[in-house]
């Protein structure tokens, strides 16, 4: 391997601007949430949050276009490409661990703490605090039905969730077909398959929103419906957020392909988004299995 030059960028304004934007989002979000909980308006916090989010969006656009520009100028060696690959891989690993925390929570609650609370097992003594509470999963009636009224019903896995599973798994295939087309340099076909992937993602999100509405309006399955609702919404909710982010990333990649970006040899940005999309897909399979079916 020849010794190639490694591009070290000059000074950049993006990181400090991104820090300011992140701070505004955090501080604004915190103020907003606190004033909503205290019922004292919250306009200032909301404004700060939105300004921060807008700023972050602009920074990311600027930062990424900077990177794309440098890449087009041929400043990036294959070693740089590997740095990006390591970076994205470890970022996805961190995301896996984020979901692992919530899956771990679900398993602990289902298999240990709810049975104990219902008087089963070695720590069943905790049932003394909530006598009459019986363990079950899904947890339809909570120990304190006044504070946390349990759901009247849960989502049937064999309708919308099954459909969503089919949608997401298909979208993993379509993004791979787009990647194949990119390797062959067939731009029409990349555009087609990417468009299909984006549409599948959007339909998934539509059904997910529809399911949430159904849960809230018809089933009484809410954030407040005890720990079943809590685990259901935190897992599916964060997954939905990640699908939203992934769809946005796919749309950006789509626009870049339309503009003529990416070559047969160099298309790391494309691959990074594809990896992310597969990751989101795999998490969904876990969700379908452990949240909906079992």
């Amino acid at each position: 391997m020849s010794v190639q030059s490694y591009y070290v960028p000059e000074q950049s304004r993006w990181p400090i601007l991104a820090s300011v934007a992140l701070f505004m989002m955090a501080y604004g979000g915190g103020s907003l949430i606190n004033s909503l909980s205290a019922n004292t308006g919250g306009g200032g916090g909301l404004l700060m949050l939105l300004a921060g989010a807008l700023g972050m969006g602009l920074v990311l656009l600027g930062w990424f276009s900077n990177v794309i520009h440098e890449s087009n100028k041929g400043l990036y060696s294959s070693q740089m490409d590997r740095s990006f690959r390591w970076g994205m891989s470890w970022f996805i690993f961190s995301e896996i661990m984020f979901f692992a925390a919530f899956f771990g929570t679900l398993f602990y609650i289902r298999n240990l703490s709810v049975p104990w609370l219902g008087g089963e097992g070695e720590k069943g003594v905790s049932n003394l605090l909530w006598q009459g509470f019986a363990a079950e999963w899904p947890l339809m009636s909570t120990p304190d039905q006044q504070a946390f009224p349990g759901p009247k019903g849960v989502i049937d896995p064999w309708h919308i969730p099954l459909l969503n599973t089919v949608l997401l798994i298909s979208s993993s295939f379509t993004v791979t077909l787009a990647h194949k087309a990119l390797k062959l340099g067939n731009r029409q076909r990349i555009i087609f398959w990417l468009a299909v992937t984006v549409v599948l993602g959007v339909i998934f999100l539509y059904f997910q929103a529809y399911e949430y509405a159904q849960a809230y309006n018809d089933l009484g399955l809410t954030l407040n419906a005890g720990v079943y609702g809590a685990t259901f919404f935190i897992l599916t909710g964060f997954h939905g957020l990640h699908v939203t982010l992934g769809t946005l990333m796919l749309i950006i990649i789509f626009l870049r392909v339309v503009k003529g970006h990416f070559s047969v040899e160099k298309h790391f940005g494309f691959e990074a988004v594809a990896w992310y999309w597969h990751f989101v897909d795999v998490v969904w399979v876990g969700l379908f299995l452990f949240v909906y079916i079992i």
Partner: peptide
């Protein structure tokens, strides 16, 4: 937001 991860009244567990 009204969840009960760490509140036994809703079926959660502070030990979690």
């Amino acid at each position: 937001f009204g969840t009960s991860f760490f509140n036994a009244a809703g079926g959660g567990d502070p030990v979690l």
